[in-house]
Write a protein that binds this DNA or RNA. Structure first.
Lengths: 214, 214
DNA sequence: TATATTAATATTGTATACAATATACAGTAT
DNA sequence: ATACTGTATATTGTATACAATATTAATATA
């Protein structure tokens, strides 16, 4: 079956790329006409796309003033990550122990992370790893929220990708989670998973502070 | 004609009223032209409103087929309420002990619930009570998600308002939460708050099953 | 020069127009 | 009668047009 992707969702992805590539800076206004011309679409689907990104917390808007890219702040970071930790950890509990094939895949991705030193690739692999770990979760509302939080946290990750040696530690935590899962210790795995998210946050806070002090 | 303000948000509220008043039935298509004419607005802001409701999980859409009101299901109910329980309980922990004035207000609302026997009013009061309890929470992302879940759960509450004697029990739980808060036992209060949400779910499941069996 | 005021321009919010697709229906063949 | 095919109608998706507001530039004035 041929499925036509809606213009709106395509626009969202393109704008999202502009954002994580730093082509649009935090707090920068997103002028509709300019963007629409740039993407060769009309304002109508563009506005719909931006409104969705606003619901997802990426973009903000004031009446009659239009959209602008949201700021990045330590405060928001400290809101998002603990929430993400709680929700992902809950999602893992609901997912149950992954299948052997999934565990193999988790190991494989984690290995790739260990050998990679491209920060952007690391962000992507970590995202995939987290997604796979909870992919059996059937709670759609929960998954939707996690997806929203992923977008938000990825902005920080792409902006402050200088993780330093936290990566190694995070990878070891992944390994630890996998070990628990192999032994069927779901609860322990989910607790460690939450910690893993918090470690990611700490790394980002460090990078953020470093960058800010320059 | 709707008065001049923020048209989109006004449309959302009007459509929302149509939904909770049962003027639109679950799974019923929402034809844009028809609705737009009815509200004396154009399709553009109406579509934007419907898209927001879709993001909030109230409405769904398929490409080229338009919007329809989401179904109500026991399955979804069992997704939403535990999530709501987790998030509200977390929000209470972050809120800290309410001020004496807030506690007085919580007592007062709970008392009103005790004397009311209008189901619709009960739903509204319970909503207000929950909102007030966590109103000190500063985590905007968390509050946004809770707001989304409130909309979703309210659909169930308005549709199956025949709570029976669960109301009395819920009110007693509220009283219990207040007692904990007065004693500064935040953690205990938040645990009971989660239970309170789950009791609400159980009541709804009962009503849902009863209605379904007729 | 700096500030206030007003005109010009740009931008958003909403309505309408047009194009693409889906749905409903009539007519025909089996 | 039923299933099928083509056509008419309705509906959505996208683009454009217009009106209301915000922003910028220009001018006048102290």
């Amino acid at each position: 079956m041929i499925t036509q992707k809606s213009l709106r969702s395509q626009i969202i992805e393109v704008v999202w790329q502009l954002i994580i590539d730093g082509k649009i800076k935090p707090n920068e206004p997103l002028r509709e006409i300019h963007l629409a011309d740039m993407l060769n679409v009309s304002r109508t689907p563009l506005r719909e796309a931006l409104q969705q990104l606003e619901l997802e917390g990426i973009v903000k808007s004031e009446p009659r003033k239009g959209f602008r890219l949201s700021d990045l702040s330590e405060e928001e970071l400290k809101e998002i990550y603990p929430l993400r930790a709680k929700l992902e950890s809950y999602a893992l509990e609901l997912s149950g122990i992954p299948s052997p094939e999934q565990i193999d895949e988790l190991i494989s991705i984690n290995h790739k992370m260990d050998t990679s030193n491209d920060p952007k690739e690391l962000v992507e692999l970590d995202e995939i790893w987290h997604g796979l770990l909870i992919s059996n979760c059937k709670n759609k509302s929960l998954m939707k929220m996690i997806k929203m939080l992923h977008r938000q946290s990825q902005r920080y990750e792409y902006a402050y990708m200088d993780f330093g040696n936290m990566v190694k530690f995070s990878i070891s935590q992944h390994a630890g989670i996998i070990e628990y899962l192999k032994k069927g210790q779901l609860k322990e795995a989910s607790i460690l998973f939450a910690e893993n998210n918090m470690v990611g946050m700490d790394a980002l806070i460090n990078s953020l502070k470093l960058k800010h002090n320059n």
